[in-house]
Design a protein around this nucleic acid. Structure first.
Length: 274
DNA sequence: CCCCTATCCTGAGGGC
DNA sequence: TGCCCTCAGGATAGGG
């Protein structure tokens, strides 16, 4: 499941792989995953343009083009942006291909088709709500205690629900919320407004640490996630609680509890997390 | 405001 | 060997 660290890894790889490259030919095999302005066609819009700046916002990728418009990509659950040789065999679930002027091809592959691709100016993408309003970037300077407190202090919802909401903090998902809660010693089922100041401080620290370590490790490849070169990350080897329900806590040996919070599988240690 | 559920979708894994 | 069922979940929509 691509969350901030996985999408950040893809963004960094893409900067090296496609910046300055001209798009020569575009093939769309699955028009239903693509959103373009009023009846226009993506191949016609993209062909001839060069990639400029590549940005990540939350779990969204924004590939800048020389027209000033952007190609927005959300990887959903199983989406991949891959850069390969143009003559490499096309996989079963490849929905979009853009051949580049260096013999490579940028491909979007997504078995479950939860991913989305859209084209337009940043304003148009926002207005069409293809790119939603997102909260603070948790690896930026702007992610202060005050900003996290604003997300947590007044709401009665659970920590899990609040952190899944992309309007508060952008880029967290099921894996890294459970990991951050473990590191902070806070149960994800706790009500936000009842957290002590030191627990909110611990969460701020834990979110930063868990995400930055995962970026260093190029993301968690649990089953589907791969980088632009189709290689696995290594952060799955460092996960403390995600996917470990019923297994012993690495810290204290207590059997990790698995439950459902905010509609998502949630794992925590009843002894280390309060 | 917030929760839960259904929806989209395929592949993996368990049971028989 | 294969079929059926369940589960996984990011974002969103609709009902309570």
């Amino acid at each position: 499941m691509p969350e901030l660290p996985e999408v950040e890894t893809v963004a960094r790889d893409l900067r090296g792989a496609v910046t300055g490259r001209r798009i020569e030919r575009v093939t769309v095999d699955r028009p239903d995953i693509v959103r373009v302005p009023d009846g226009r066609m993506l191949p016609a819009l993209l062909t001839g343009q060069r990639f400029e700046g590549i940005e990540r916002r939350g779990k969204y990728l924004l590939l800048g083009l020389d027209s000033g418009d952007e190609l927005m990509v959300h990887l959903g659950m199983t989406g991949h942006l891959l850069v390969c040789d143009a003559d490499a065999p096309v996989a079963k679930h490849t929905h979009l291909r853009a051949s580049l002027d260096d013999g490579h091809e940028l491909r979007f592959d997504d078995a479950r088709r939860f991913g989305r691709i859209a084209y337009g100016s940043r304003e148009a993408l926002t207005a069409a709500r293809v790119l939603p309003r997102l909260g603070v970037e948790p690896l930026s300077e702007a992610f202060s205690q005050a900003r996290l407190d604003a997300v947590l202090r007044t709401t009665t919802r659970t920590v899990k629900a609040a952190l899944l909401d992309q309007k508060g903090v952008a880029g967290l998902g099921n894996i890294y919320i459970d990991e951050a809660c473990f590191l902070a010693g806070v149960r994800p089922t706790r009500r936000c407004h009842r957290l002590a100041r030191r627990e909110r401080a611990a969460l701020l620290d834990a979110i930063r640490q868990v995400l930055s370590a995962a970026v260093v490790n190029r993301g968690s490849s649990i089953d589907d996630y791969r980088d632009v070169w189709n290689a696995r990350g290594s952060n799955q080897e460092r996960l403390q609680v995600y996917g470990r329900g019923g297994m012993p806590c690495f810290e204290c040996g207590t059997t990790l509890r698995r439950t459902v919070a905010a509609g998502r599988t949630t794992v925590y240690c009843t002894s280390c997390q309060r």
